[in-house]
Design a binder for these strands. Structure first.
Length: 210
DNA sequence: GCTCCCGCAGTCCTTACCTCA
DNA sequence: TATGAGGTAAGGACTGCGGGA
């Protein structure tokens, strides 16, 4: 079903569904949504800022408090470099860490989490899209079923004739006029080795069930 | 075959925010 | 209206595993 992306920087999920060509499974408007965008106007106005200088111990001399929450500027720079590259080579990681006054490991973890959560968001969006698509297809299916029922009720269909020989209905399209006796003949029957089935135009026309 | 490195999935844990009594 | 408890989402960090060099 799902095909994992070959490159971590190109996040694409292909889900095949009956009746869907792969190229139309997810529209580009869904696929190309910028999930790298940092939500603006959020609640993260004031970050708790703890830089590398104050990480070693807490004020009461207890165990070092876990460092959480990057500053806005750190997040901004990380986002910026993530937009350029979804993975970092060791040199880039080192430089970025130095620039942000973070440990390379923290930069590495941030990128790992960012990749994972981008993928999650992408999957959620595609899931939503497919749910909506499924809903509309179900509705379309219902409409078509109703249409079929109405047509059945009207008994509309290709006309057939009843063969006088076999008393079985034959599609009218298989009939042709016999040039010698001016009678309608069944092509299917004419193809037979010995028998020649003939019928008149006055043969009863039957409507087969759909 | 073994080791190292890296990315990923899954998870834990802390923090911030929201709701409600 | 203020406030504290509980719930929840977000995000930083860790662990274990697998694949490639």
């Amino acid at each position: 079903m799902a095909v994992l992306p070959s490159s971590p920087s190109s996040l694409e999920l292909t889900i095949s569904m009956p009746g869907f060509a792969s190229s139309q499974s997810i529209p580009s408007s869904v696929r190309n949504l910028d999930i790298n965008q940092v939500p603006s106007g959020g609640v993260e106005e004031e970050w708790i800022t703890m830089n590398m200088e104050d990480e070693e111990e807490s004020s009461n001399g207890g165990p070092p408090r876990k460092k959480l929450r990057l500053t806005k500027e750190q997040s901004r720079l990380l986002e910026e470099s993530f937009r350029q590259n979804h993975t970092l080579n060791p040199k880039q990681k080192e430089n970025l860490a130095m620039q942000l006054k973070l440990k390379p490991r923290q930069v590495e973890v941030w990128f790992q989490n960012r990749r994972a959560r981008s993928k999650l968001k992408q999957t959620e969006m595609e899931c939503e899209f497919l749910k909506r698509r499924f809903g509309s297809l179900t509705e379309q299916n219902r409409r078509l079923q109703r249409e079929v029922e109405e047509l059945r009720a009207m008994k509309v269909g290709p006309p057939t004739v009843i063969s006088p020989n076999s008393c079985e209905p034959l599609p009218a399209s298989t009939l042709s006029m016999c040039p010698r006796c001016e009678r309608v003949t069944s092509n299917a029957a004419l193809k037979g080795p010995t028998k020649t089935a003939t019928t008149t135009l006055s043969t009863k026309v039957a409507v087969p069930p759909l």
